[in-house]
């Protein structure tokens, strides 16, 4: 799988050094919306200049090249074990070639592996697809925004959050209020709702792979996505937390069925530098 390995190295390079077009458009839209001469406008201008410089020079646009998270759709008959090996090899090579910042640290020895591989590192999710093509989606998830994520077990009395979509709305607002400007706003938020906490955490993060221009298929959920963008922007935290009109560019929600006794909500916070990309093989 030598050629596939090269393809994944290139995917790493592209994802680390360029912002997806839909995200860049959203940042430009935010800039147009901020008051001229404001700190928010200055911040967004620096962000756009940075995006351009990184893309033109193939350098990482953020020094935190994050935790690589792979979502792999595998056609019937392809070995997941071999694919995993190829991803690990490509990760070692990309760390040298792009280069990526080595981010995989051993819990016991505190030693950095130096090549972005380790136990459970990168994160890889496989799913079998009925199609003939292998589809590899990669997100480089920065830790500053990962640290701002929250999980809620509804009901939450302090928030008067009951087991309904109104309760979910309060949880998302609470997460952003707690994050303030620390996780590099304007944010993109992924929300997962369902029966178990491992499941909703994965579901929430997966929503960050959605294009900012799409909306949830179910009317009630799509309405909540729009409502939340509007509510969050009322908070006034603004780009990089210096105040302003844009605190969130997008909210993406997905739901699973839940157990009668459980109502888990997970919120995955994405920074403005939402680096994601796809390789079709």
């Amino acid at each position: 799988m030598l050629k596939l390995r090269d393809g994944i190295v290139e995917l790493y390079r592209k994802v680390a050094s360029s912002l997806p077009p839909d995200v860049e458009e959203a940042v430009k839209g935010a800039l147009a919306h901020e008051a001229e001469g404001s700190g928010a406008a200055a911040t967004l201008s620096v962000i756009l200049e940075n995006v351009k410089r990184a893309r033109d020079t193939f350098r990482p646009l953020c020094q935190d090249t994050g935790v690589p998270v792979f979502y792999v759709k595998v056609p019937f008959g392809l070995s997941q074990k071999e694919l995993k090996n190829t991803i690990m090899e490509a990760t070692r090579e990309a760390t040298q070639k792009v280069p990526l910042r080595p981010n995989a640290v051993d819990i016991i020895t505190e030693k950095n592996s130096g090549d972005n591989t380790g136990e459970g590192f990168p994160v890889i999710y496989f799913e079998e697809t009925s199609g003939g093509a292998l589809i590899i989606d990669l997100m480089l998830k920065g830790a500053g925004c990962e640290n701002a994520g929250q999980t809620y077990k509804l009901p939450v009395e302090e928030l008067a959050a009951q087991r309904d979509l109104e309760g979910v709305r309060k949880c998302v607002l609470d997460t952003v209020q707690k994050a303030q400007g620390r996780a590099c706003p304007p944010y993109i938020l992924g929300v997962g709702i369902g029966a178990t906490k491992d499941q909703v955490a994965r579901l929430a993060k997966e929503q960050l792979m959605r294009k900012l221009t799409d909306s949830a298929a179910t009317g009630e959920i799509a309405a909540l996505e729009r409502q939340l963008v509007s509510d969050i922007n009322e908070l006034g935290i603004g780009p990089m937390g210096l105040g302003g009109r844009t605190t969130a560019m997008s909210v993406k929600i997905a739901v699973n069925h839940r157990h009668p006794a459980s109502y888990f909500v997970d919120i995955s916070v994405g920074c403005w530098a939402m680096r994601r990309g796809r390789l079709i093989w």
């Binding site: 620096v46 962000i47 940075n50 350098r59 990482p60 646009l61 953020c62 990089m240 920074c271």
Partner: peptide, 8 residues
């Protein structure tokens, strides 16, 4: 500015 790593 957070994330403006190439620029900085």
């Amino acid at each position: 500015t957070g994330g403006a790593a190439a620029y900085l």
